[in-house]
Amino acid sequence: MSDRSSGSRRTAGPRRGVPDLARLRALNPAALVRSAGFPVTSAPTPSSVEPLPGPPLGDRYESSWARRPLARATRVATQETLGRAVTTALCAPQVVNRDRIDQLEGPAVFVANHHSHLDTGVVTGALPRPWRHELVVAAAADYFFDTPGRAAAAAWFWGAVPMERKRVSRRSALAAAELIDKGWSLLVFPEGGRSPDGWGQEHKGGAAYLAVRCDVPVVPIHIHGTDRVLPKGSSMPRPGRVVVNFGPPLTHGDLDARRFASRIEGTLELLADETTSDWYSARLAATRGESPGLRGPDIDSWRRDWLLERRRPAQQGAASPGGSAQRTWRDRARGNRPW
């Protein structure tokens, strides 16, 4: 079955369910609640009235409660049980090259490509402790923090913090920097959103900026395969193979944020190439400046789809050194602070 046909099946799925839903509306609790009306449901704001400013949302959302002990403990427990079970059931991610961060210490900015809602779970599951549990995830302020319920769920389950992706916002950058300074690590998807077609998108500069500003290393991570398991626009996951490839921690040295950003993007391209070919070929290609890149050619969409099909990961079953490596530096950690 080709991707195209499966793609059409994905879109057909929900449509086929529509008539059934219509017939069952009488039994639909949500419809029942709606038909009960006010005060069971909320009342519409009269058109002549200025709406009451709601609780702060978007990049103003106050997520600190999700980093308090109780929220953290329940998050860790949930991630380690339910989260891990779901990830394992769907894709059982294969983690490769995690030994590259054996020497990493202290907070870091983890940078990954972004295809799917699964990415966060896959990365956090692949991260060794202590980063896994002392991590905040930069999440789209306009998407995950648009309603109080969704904001609370994201903040609690992923430890998400709002990150403005559509406009320059000093507020979210400052808040993230403050968290890194406090010892939290940050997971950023610099593409600013999930890929619509499996190819990468242009990187935004926030991750590099934060790494430079807070003087912490950046760890690039390439995720392969989540675009097939749960692509953007789908709500029904299809189990499949996923590879998580850790890159080496990068320090900015004396690079400014912009150049550091392009170095990070380059490293991710190298890692992507490495996932589909092998380590050395990828290095050679990179040296020659022939890495295939993440964004794909600037051509019509069907051909981009077509090309993507050729980028399949090489069999790397045995090549996962450090897959079970556990860091020990945490044992030397001082006091209550993570670092």
Partner: peptide
């Protein structure tokens, strides 16, 4: 509170 500003908790406590 004005009725259209009743949140879930307000409506529950009213009922």
């Amino acid at each position: 509170k004005r009725e259209w500003e009743w949140n879930v908790r307000d409506r529950a406590s009213f009922m």
